[in-house]
């Protein structure tokens, strides 16, 4: 048994965008469409105060792999498509998913349509609509002018859709998920199982993200959490409200220290 989680040191974080974009290159997530971000890793900016005493914090976000995950209880499929693994990861099985989006509705960190949800800054779960053309850009054969290529030609010539598709194998997830399915961060389990860290953690230039087993007191993540327990907080929703990590549904992405030094 383990409880994988992530501790993010906000003093080290500069909100630079590398984790959000790195995740997309690792997991081949799509461009945003009809209110779905398809950013498994994203950002929640929070600011207060008037000029010149403005305080600004950027929280890098991802699925919190909550201990009491409402998305899991909401999943109507049996056996569940959204389920907890014994390593703590809230896993989503693409095959069993029926696209009902009950999980997206139940998750406080997700919106069914981010454009229609006032104040929503990110959405952990995204939905590939039924009949949606995933990676549409690289199926489009239109050429802008005589002498330019097209998305479809790039896919054909490279042999990938998208051409920059990172191939990986995982029993629950395909490198590119299909239509009529939700999708979300699975802590890059395919990397973790082969001894690597989730890709968002690998690409963070300031090593602000520490992934590990929060049930193991000797893990780096647990030790960091212990050292900075006074400043430990978690997000409560996707609008920037905060909570103590072990309140409510017990999110397992925990922020320590503060983004701003003033």
């Amino acid at each position: 048994m383990a409880k994988y989680g992530m501790v993010i040191d906000l003093l080290k974080c500069t909100g630079c965008g590398a984790c959000g974009l790195g995740c997309k290159t690792q997991n081949n997530t799509d461009d945003p469409s009809n209110g779905q971000t398809f950013n498994w890793a994203d950002y929640c900016e929070s600011y207060s105060g008037k000029f010149p005493n403005m305080k600004y914090t950027m929280y890098p976000t991802l699925c919190n792999h909550c201990t009491d995950a409402p998305c899991v209880s909401a999943c109507p499929v049996n056996p569940k498509a959204m389920y907890k693994k014994d390593n703590g990861i809230t896993m989503h099985n693409e095959d069993r998913c029926i696209g009902c989006r009950m999980c997206q509705r139940a998750c406080p960190y997700s919106s069914n349509d981010i454009n229609a949800d006032a104040g929503a800054k990110y959405s952990v779960i995204s939905f590939n609509a039924a009949g949606k053309e995933t990676q549409a850009k690289y199926k489009d054969s239109s050429e802008l002018f005589k002498g330019s290529t097209s998305g479809a030609e790039l896919a054909r010539k490279s042999g990938g859709t998208p051409p920059y598709k990172t191939e990986f194998s995982h029993p629950d997830y395909n490198p590119v998920r299909g239509a009529n399915k939700v999708e979300k961060c699975i802590f890059c389990e395919h990397l973790v199982q082969s001894g690597h860290k989730p890709y968002c953690t690998q690409v963070c230039p300031s090593e602000a993200r520490v992934f590990g087993d929060l049930d193991d007191p000797n893990s780096e993540a647990s030790k960091l959490l212990k050292k900075h327990s006074s400043s430990a907080v978690s997000l409560k929703d996707n609008k920037g409200a905060m909570q103590k990590p072990d309140d409510g549904i017990k999110p397992n992405v925990i922020y320590i220290r503060s983004y701003a030094a003033r």
């Binding site: 099985n93 194998s169 995982h170 029993p171 009529n180």
Partner: peptide, 18 residues
């Protein structure tokens, strides 16, 4: 529509060679 990815592949989780 039929779920085009009905068959989910088995096999250990890992990244393809590169």
């Amino acid at each position: 529509t039929l779920n085009a990815f009905a068959e989910t592949r088995t096999g250990a989780e890992s990244e393809a060679a590169g």
